[in-house]
Structures are given as structure tokens and as C-alpha cells.
Amino acid sequence: MVTEVKKWQWFYRLGSPRWFYEITGRWLPWLLCAASLLLASGLFWGLLVAPPDARQGNSFRIIYLHVPAAILALVGYYIMALAGAVGLIWRIKMSFMVMKSAAPIGAALTFIALFTGAVWGKPSWGTYWVWDARITSMLILLFLYLGVLALQRAFSSAEMAYRASAILALVGTINIPIIYKSVDWWHTLHQPATLKLTSASSIHIDMLQPLIVMICGFYVFYVVALCLFTRAEIIRREATSAWVRALVSNESSR
């Protein structure tokens, strides 16, 4: 069994991280351009061009940050858990690195969703915070992300840290459908979903278009951030490998 695992570790160490590092190095400038363009135009459109809401006035414009951040916070959790599962089953180091990199991004996006939600709640609901099912389950998501981050530091062995946080990430996946359906299952202060998977969205088209641009922007931004974090992790983990040493000496000789 040990020899079997060793053989594959050796195979993946030689192959994947280097390929990932080189391919993302080529794509990153373009992805960064696309993310900046989408986010800048989406923000301009949503904050200044889109009409105000009939009831909420201009405070509704916070939706252009709140909803995309919340969507990517949930999607990002599935990405993290899936990468962790692949790492656990196939022991692919590269997969664990992606999982580890997804944690700080997810935590930051969850924080944005919670913060903008609080700031939006004051003018629309009359309170910054309530302990309803949606908001509380979103706070649990933040703690799950922070838990995965903390577990990474709790082990001296990188391999153990990877496995432990992958298991925590897997256990936490049950929270995602709970967050998503909380507004339908229980009475909450938070309103039900505006963007629906199966039926028409209950937002006017003039307000929907910039929201879609922002969501696309957040998706591309997520990919950029995930690549950046993973590339840093690759260099740390692969610091003694021949290709990283070659990369560094090539850079310094230029």
C-alpha cells in the first residue's frame, strides 16, 4: 500500500503543480483584465446608471456587491470541498493546494456578504443584524472557512493538515443547501431569493443586467484569486523541487 501511494505521489509531484503554475502564469494577465473590466463596468452601471428601487431608493444598490459575493461564497465552498474530496481519494497534492487556497477567498467573500448585508439592513429593515436562519447560517459558513484556515496551521505535518481540513470542508457542505433554502424553510427577516434557478427573476431587467455583469465579474475574480493563492502555495510546497529552483535561477540571471 505504502509503495503504491508513494509511486503516485511521485507521479503527481512531478506533473501537476508545475503544469498548473505555468498555464496559470500565461492566463492570469488576461483573466485579471477581464475581472477588472467586468467589475468596474458592473459597478459603474449598477451604482450610477441603473434606476433606483421604487421602495428602497438608492440603498438597494448594495445588491450589486451583496448578491455576487454571497453566490461566490457558496459556490466557492463547493469548490473547496470538491478539491478536498479529490485530494483525499486520489491523494493529489495539487488538489489539496487548491482546497487550501479556496479557504481565505471564501472567508473574505462571506465577510463581504455579511458586511454589505448588515449595512443594507439598517436602511431597509431598521437593524444591522438579526439572528434569523439565513444570516446565522451565513455566519456559520464564515466560521467553517475560518476553521479550514485554522486547521491548516494546527498541524506540523502539511499532509495531516491537508487531510484534516479536507474532512472539515466535506462535513460543512451540508450548510450550503441550508443557507440556500433557509428563506423558504423558515420564517426569516431576510426576503426569499430574487434570482431563481427555475423561474423568472423578480427584478426589473434594467436592474438585472448590471447584476449579471457583477456576478460574472465575481466569478472571473474568484478564478484569479484562486490561481494567485494556489501559485504561492505551489512555490512554498515545491520549494526544493528542481523546476522551482530552475525558475528562480532563471529569473535572477535575467
Binding site: 428601487d53 421604487a54 427577516l189 426576503q191 426569499p192 431569493a193 430574487t194 423578480s202 427584478i203 426589473h204
Partner: peptide, 16 residues
């Protein structure tokens, strides 16, 4: 304490 609960519909004032 009294809180306002708004719905999930968003529309411009003219449309409303």
C-alpha cells in the same frame, strides 16, 4: 422593536 420586512421584488419607481 419594529422591523420592516421587504419582499424580493426590485423595480424602478416608474414601473411601480
Amino acid at each position: 422593536e419594529v422591523l420592516a420586512k421587504h419582499d424580493e421584488n426590485y423595480m424602478p419607481p416608474e414601473v411601480a
